[in-house]
């Protein structure tokens, strides 16, 4: 398979060599063997813990919200309400726009005082938010935008899943006289499991290693308050700590692996039961 060659050559091979570099002090120009020093130094990073916590919060929250909202919108758009084609297009539109563009725009929209979002909150009688400016809330501001941008994709995946559910199931349910909620809970939800799995795996992995939106909106700030693992690693790379950042990547990979592999098994097992 030509694809296999491209993939193995251009992705896997460099990835394996990066394992070697993670044990080197690597300035891109010279390498010096330092054993596990890079890993030790990476684990001693004073902001690592905060970054790990943020990574989990970010990944689980975005993926949870995308599953819930995406499924809701999918079901809604499969029902026979008016304008559903239009609504679907509107929801999907942000997926088409560049992350950098979205980041810049929301940075402006989320400004306190002059920002539109805070204006809406004030209009509803809420306090000044300035969500990106406070160390405690900045990460949640980015999470909101991530969900906003990505929920269209989740919706489309659900729509595809819903459309592949054979009509007989609905018919059978109708004959049995089940109500809407039961219908959803016992028929649609289990049959949607493959779609749910796809959304979970994609958005969870995406969330665990993503940082482009964070980078565009807060740069990990204020200070290091909204840094996630991937942005910390990027900061190392940018500082010229190439070996260190490679070691960080390896550490992140192990972390994701420990999380995703059991989860994948679990999700697959539920699929089979259906």
């Amino acid at each position: 398979m030509p694809l296999g060659i491209i993939f193995l050559g251009l992705y896997l091979l460099p990835t394996i060599t990066s394992l070697y570099y993670s044990t080197q002090r690597w300035t891109l120009f010279d390498t010096t063997f330092v054993g596990l020093d890079n890993f030790i130094q990476f684990l001693q990073d004073p902001f690592l813990l905060n970054g790990v916590v943020n990574t989990f919060v970010y990944a689980f929250l975005t993926s949870g919200l995308k599953v819930t909202i995406g499924m809701f919108l999918g079901v809604l758009l499969m029902s026979n309400i008016k304008f559903r084609g239009l609504i679907r297009n509107i929801i999907f539109f942000p997926v088409l726009v560049s992350t950098i563009g979205i980041g810049i725009t929301f940075q402006v929209l989320m400004k306190p005082d002059i920002g539109v979002l805070d204006g809406i909150v004030r209009l509803l009688g809420g306090p000044d938010v300035g969500i990106l400016g406070s160390p405690a809330t900045a990460i949640f501001g980015v999470i909101l935008v991530d969900v906003w941008k990505g929920v269209g994709l989740a919706t489309v995946i659900y729509l595809a899943g819903l459309s592949s559910i054979p009509q007989e199931y609905y018919e059978a349910a109708k004959v049995d006289g089940v109500t809407g909620w039961q219908n959803f809970r016992h028929i649609i939800l289990p049959l949607l499991q493959p779609a749910t799995n796809t959304v979970i795996i994609l958005s969870l992995i995406g969330g665990l290693r993503s940082f482009d939106l964070i980078w565009a909106m807060t740069g990990g700030g204020p200070g290091f308050a909204s840094d996630v693992l991937a942005s910390l690693i990027y900061k190392q790379y940018q500082s010229g700590f190439f070996g260190l950042s490679t070691a960080g990547n390896v550490a992140m990979f192990v972390l994701i692996l420990l999380l995703i592999v059991p989860l994948n098994k679990f999700l697959k097992s539920r699929e089979v039961e259906v």
Partner: peptide
């Protein structure tokens, strides 16, 4: 980033200075 931390009250001046010393050490080692 360390300066932003001090300027937004996330860490004290002394803590910020110590963080920066560590940062400098990491750079020198690299």
């Amino acid at each position: 980033s360390i300066c932003v931390q001090v300027l937004t009250g996330q860490v004290s001046a002394k803590e910020g200075a110590a963080l920066y010393d560590k940062d400098v050490a990491a750079q020198a080692q690299q």
